[in-house]
């Protein structure tokens, strides 16, 4: 199997604070991995390094054989990123937002209506994003991340702000991407299990355990010293 994401001994410091302290991780092509951990564990920092938004202080980071912090059009085109921040322009309509990103990614604009229908925003395609609810913005953000059909999907708490129905719809939609590599950060064990096979538990900037997503909840609670009666 081809290793698509390789991290070796990655350290990220912000001044005196070590957000990541020697993280090593390998993700194979087509694998779906959940990154779990409490707030401040370093999950978002980790995915920002993988996506190239943040530079590691030290260590090896490779995505598809390239360092993501060095600009590469090919690498950027193969990644889609969804976070709790939708990265949308409030004064543009839903359609305009997707059209803008399609142009940046050299993506096929004819996919926009289909994507809007999938995220159930087709009826509101000509409405400005500032009129959207949090959940609607998040759904549009997912369409934005998928406009260029990326091979690797990085999801940083993607269901943040969605109701139960919205979460389920999104997860079902993402499950359709069988052949994509998915990296998901979440607090929600149920989501992790639904979407991913493998879980990596991060605590205080270190990988403390790798296991299957089925075992992740019990393992995580044990590591936190918690019990659920």
């Amino acid at each position: 199997m081809v290793e698509e994401i390789v991290l070796e001994n990655v350290v990220k410091s912000f001044g005196r604070i070590r957000a990541l302290d020697g993280v090593s991780l390998r993700v194979e092509k087509g694998e779906k991995v959940a990154i779990l951990g409490p707030n401040g564990a370093g999950k978002t920092t980790l995915v920002r390094i993988i996506s190239g938004q943040t530079r590691a202080t030290s260590g090896k980071v490779e995505v598809m054989g390239k360092n993501p912090s060095t600009f590469s059009r090919e690498l950027r085109r193969s990644m889609g990123f969804v976070s709790h921040n939708p990265m949308l322009y409030d004064e543009l309509t839903a359609y305009e937002n997707l059209k803008f990103y399609a142009k940046l990614y050299d993506a096929d604009e004819s996919r926009i209506p289909e994507l809007l229908k999938k995220v159930k925003l087709y009826e509101r395609r000509h409405s400005r994003v500032k009129t959207f609810s949090r959940g609607m913005k998040q759904r549009l953000a997912i369409a934005r991340a998928l406009i260029h059909n990326p091979e690797i999907l990085i999801l940083d708490e993607p269901t943040s702000g969605l109701d139960v129905e919205g979460r389920l719809e999104l997860l079902n939609y993402l499950k359709a991407f069988e052949d994509r590599t998915i990296l998901l950060t979440t607090h929600n064990m149920w989501e992790a299990e639904k979407l991913c096979e493998r879980a990596v538990i991060l605590m205080k900037g270190r990988v403390v355990k790798e296991c299957s997503t089925r075992e992740a909840e019990r393992t995580y609670l044990e590591l936190c010293g918690l019990e659920f009666d």
């Binding site: 190239g52 938004q53 600009f71 059009r73 990123f81 921040n85 990265m87 949308l88 940046l104 990614y105």
Partner: peptide, 15 residues
Amino acid sequence: ELETLDGLRLAPVHP
């Protein structure tokens, strides 16, 4: 302020 700068950084557009 709109948190859209990350969207531009992630895109295959040279800085």
